[in-house]
Computed example of a mutant assay.
Amino acid sequence: MTSEKKTVRAAAIQVEARVADIPWNIEHASRLVDEAVAQGAEIVALPEFFTTCIIYDERVFASSLPPENPALDMLKEKARRHRIHVGGSYLEMRNGDVYNTYVLVEPDGTVHRHDKDLPTMVENAFYVGGRDNGLMQTSLGPVGAAVCWETVRTQTVKRLRGQVALLMTGSHWWSEPGWKWFRNYWRGLHEGNGRLMARTPGTFAALVGAPLLHAGHASVIEGRMLVLPGTRLTLPMRTQLMGETQVIDGQGNLLARRRYQEGAGVAVADIALGAAAPRAEMPDAFWIPRLGPMLSFQWHHQNAAGKAAYRWAKRTGRLKVWEGMRNAQSADERL
């Protein structure tokens, strides 16, 4: 990598996606990519799970896509038409398992993939972890992909630190479950969670040493929460997705921001591509921030409950490609 850095206009997109409504979500994302391009963006980041929000809802078991799919087609079309780099993640089924796959598409149609390493909590019900390092060799230079809680783990920093010209990140970051009892406690948890989400992109960029695009969700979603691992016992929940769509420079400084209260839209700023000297010291721990006892408990409890649900869904045939995808493939075969 040369010391000379190219300045480009970049955009991170905040969506208000819906649970299991893949056609609507793709069209919603498409319109927002066009909005970013209209503001001059040459690099555009969509969030994690831009094709469906994730909550325990059995419709999500049938919301994965094959490697060639309408979401990827949309990204390819935008990349080629507007001569941009554009990326985001969705559930992708390959060889009988589902992955949280971040794809980055170049203007010439080249596709790079990264599978999130560890599902977060209830996400374990819908996909398994990947094994690649998230390092993509592109025409922009080396790009690092990291999805949601990958950005709060030191193992991600170790894979990418000092090696990338740009970080493409996105999240689908829950808040508290919306229960009416102990409201003051949940309000405090919501506020603390918001502070953690707000500082994560800048902290991660400073640790890795690269400019960063972080795309987020701003929807309020309703569904269920798994209660007891190995069972389908659930409680109803309603949660706010925490947004914090940000553009960050290579030193970890905030350049543009969109909070969840602002809804869907774009955050746009000029960034200088290229690796920077990491500004922050990496903690000698698994997590970058200190997680409180409730988040730590939820991590272990919901991981176990989600993994059991994934095994059940796979065993019973519920884990499958989106019905609309299969219908389209059947129509093609009839032609």
Rank of each mutant, 00 (worst) to 15 (best):
N124T: 05
F126H: 07
F126S: 07
F126K: 04
Y127E: 08
Y127L: 06
V128M: 05
G130S: 02
G130T: 07
R131I: 08
D132T: 13
D132G: 12
D132I: 11
N133G: 13
N133V: 07
G134R: 12
L135A: 09
L135Y: 09
T138H: 02
S139W: 01
S139H: 00
S139D: 08
L140G: 02
L140N: 00
G141M: 02
P142M: 06
P142D: 06
V143Q: 04
V143Y: 05
G144C: 11
G144M: 09
A145F: 06
A146P: 13
A146V: 14
V147E: 11
C148E: 11
W149M: 13
E150N: 10
E150A: 15
T151E: 12
V152C: 11
R153I: 06
T154F: 10
T154K: 13
T154S: 15
Q155H: 14
Q155F: 15
T156G: 09
V157H: 12
V157S: 11
K158E: 14
R159F: 08
R159E: 11
R159N: 14
L160S: 12
R161C: 03
G162P: 02
G162N: 02
G162E: 03
V164C: 06
V164T: 07
V164S: 09
A165R: 11
A165K: 05
L166M: 09
L167N: 12
L167A: 09
L167W: 06
L167E: 06
L167K: 05
T169R: 06
T169F: 03
T169I: 08
